[in-house]
Amino acid sequence: MNNSVTTESIAPLASEKTPEKAKTSNVITEENSDAYTTVGQAFSENAKMSMRNVNVFYDEKQAIYDVNLDIGTNEVVAMIGPSGCGKSTFLRCLNRMNDTIDTCKVTGKFLLEDQDINDRKMDVVPLRARVGMVFQKPNPFPKSIYDNVAYGARIHGLADRKSDLDDIVETSLQKAGLWNEVKDRLQQPGTSLSGGQQQRLCIARTIAVSPEVILMDEPCSALDPIATARIEELIDELSQNYTIAIVTHSMQQAARVSHRTAYFHLGKLIEVNETEKVFTNPDHGLTEAYITGRFG
């Protein structure tokens, strides 16, 4: 199912500011377009998150140029692009993970429903409870499987009783499709699982907090094909209830799991479109070059 309703015209807010902003940045890219316009359908009527005029700097170096993008409710948006195109950086902005990097400066509006999460006054702790994240490398805590999943619920005080916590752990593991494999060894360390299981454990850990949005930063890049297939299946199931933004290196994966696909190139959002369209008939030449494998 695809809830995203795309708009044909670019929102006035964005169209006014885009050229001006891009001009002020002195970086000359290979296509040398000072002002650029994202082609396709970057906006959604039923947006869970709306990003406007996002610029990201590492010290003096600009990593993201004026990106505008909506993520619709219960939609899966995939972000693809060559290495260093800024797609991971962009994703990490969505729950302020870039706060942990001192040199990183983020400007622009990030609306989660109607709250600007990039506001310095915004409290990141409840934000991250609403916008969860799954990382590139499986990073289970050196604790038992149970404690890994229960961790988020515990710190956020989601369970009042032990039985509530047990329920949360069980449902999360079930949703992550890991329950049958680990239900007999919940007290074993999370690190004893295989790579794919570890990553599903990390997903279970994330959904145990019942976030509204799940961010996934190349969740399968460290996994073998079978484990990857299992995770992709999982993403598909999760999209019933959650809004998902996923960064991936694999175009096939993007094609398989996402509703819409965003193509990033050298810090710029070149094209956003229905996934099918991006992979069959992209609007932009750069997108086409990328999906046909001319660079990557």
């Binding site: 729950n95 993970m97 942990t100 990141v124 702790v125 409840p126 934000l127 991250r128 409870a129 969860g132 994240m133 799954v134 990382f135 490398k137 990073n139 289970p140 805590f141 050196p142 604790k143 961790y151 988020g152 710190i155 956020h156 990390c202 850990r205 994330t206 907090v209």
Partner: peptide, 27 residues
């Protein structure tokens, strides 16, 4: 202690002290 564990904890919405007490310290 690898940064990925810190990221994991922060990503779930831990405060700094929770990350330290419950993830970094045990690790």
């Amino acid at each position: 202690v690898p940064q990925s564990l810190r990221d994991g904890a922060y990503g779930l919405g831990s405060t700094q002290s929770e990350t330290i007490k419950k993830v970094i310290f045990p690790a």
